[in-house]
């Protein structure tokens, strides 16, 4: 069912390698030379300069970078919600110019990404209806995904009747019921409390292992990136480039307590932290370059 758990071991022994990590896996998501300049009247702002990376099939990769480094811009370009100024995004070999059918996105603002006038079940089911999945299979998918996020009991509730963490789980259930090839997550846990966050992190690992879906997880939280990812891409400050590409050679089975106390975890965390500090300072003088002539 999941090639990931087996494949994860292959990374061990190449800590800190900065080459790409697909190895024997086929590429699922390929971002090449992505640049995004916002044209704002008199001055243009280059949010993303030149991003190139790729995700192998079934990989779980975390993107981490200093705040304001254009993570959301990047994610919107990858999701096909925003055209890049230059560069390309490919999903399973197909160029992405509009939201592709094989991609699901979980946004940070859970309260604003659910349909408040629909029940939890209807929220999860709606995209499946649009995909013209027959009734029986649809019910199955909805039930399974609600079960996976532990919300079976709340299927008939409205999203606003649930807590923040539960609402985000509805969004996750909707994403997994959609059976995407790639799951994009834009700081999905930034707005939930710490305990809920830990639970949701484990939930994502679980789902990823079970479904074998390719996950790109954007976060500003270094611990989260290292805990969750098989690989961590560190972005520089805006205008953004990939500053470092770190393989997380931790065991596949992770645990909030033991993993976070692991010596290797601390090392990796320190390395990502150093990279981000460097990203912040290194491009500090270059800040003016963010504004280029229109």
């Amino acid at each position: 069912m999941s090639a990931n758990s087996a494949g994860a071991g292959a990374y061990t022994g190449s800590p800190g390698a900065t080459t790409n990590h697909q190895g024997e896996r086929p590429t699922m998501l390929k971002v090449t030379g992505l640049q995004k300049i916002y044209n704002g009247g008199a001055s243009a702002v280059e949010a993303v300069r030149d991003l190139t990376f790729d995700l192998g099939e079934g990989e779980l990769v975390c993107l981490v970078g200093p705040s304001g480094c254009g993570k959301t811009t990047l994610l919107k370009c990858i999701a096909g919600l925003m055209p890049p100024t230059s560069g390309t995004v490919e999903l399973a070999g197909q160029s992405v110019t509009a939201p592709p059918p094989g991609m699901a996105v979980v946004f940070q603002e859970y309260g604003r990404s659910l349909f408040a006038w629909m029940s939890v079940r209807a929220n999860v089911e709606l995209p499946l209806k649009e995909k013209r999945i027959p009734r029986g299979r649809r019910d199955e998918l909805v039930d399974e995904s609600l079960e996976a996020v532990g919300l079976t009991r709340f299927a008939d509730a409205y999203p606003w009747q649930l807590s923040g963490g539960m609402q985000q789980r509805v969004a996750i259930a909707r994403a997994i019921a959609y059976e995407p090839q790639v799951l994009l997550m834009d700081e999905p846990f930034a707005a939930v409390d710490a305990q809920t966050r830990a639970d949701l992190e484990d939930l994502i690992r679980q789902i990823w292992q079970r479904m074998g879906v390719t996950v790109l997880f954007v976060t500003h939280d270094i611990d989260e990136a290292v805990y969750l990812g098989e690989r961590v891409l560190v972005l520089s400050s805006s205008p953004t480039v990939v500053q470092d590409d770190i393989t997380v050679d931790l065991p596949t089975e992770r645990d909030q307590l033991t993993t976070r106390q692991d010596e290797r975890f601390t090392e990796l965390r320190a390395r990502v932290y150093a990279q981000i500090q460097q990203a912040k300072n290194g491009t500090g003088a270059d800040q003016d370059a963010a504004s280029v002539a229109p």
Binding site: L81, P101, A104, E109, R112, L126, P127, E130, R174, Y178
Partner: peptide
Amino acid sequence: VLADTARCYGITGTTRLRV
């Protein structure tokens, strides 16, 4: 954000208008 969500999940046209 909701409009982006709808786009990502292929909710377009009259369904988009309706739901």
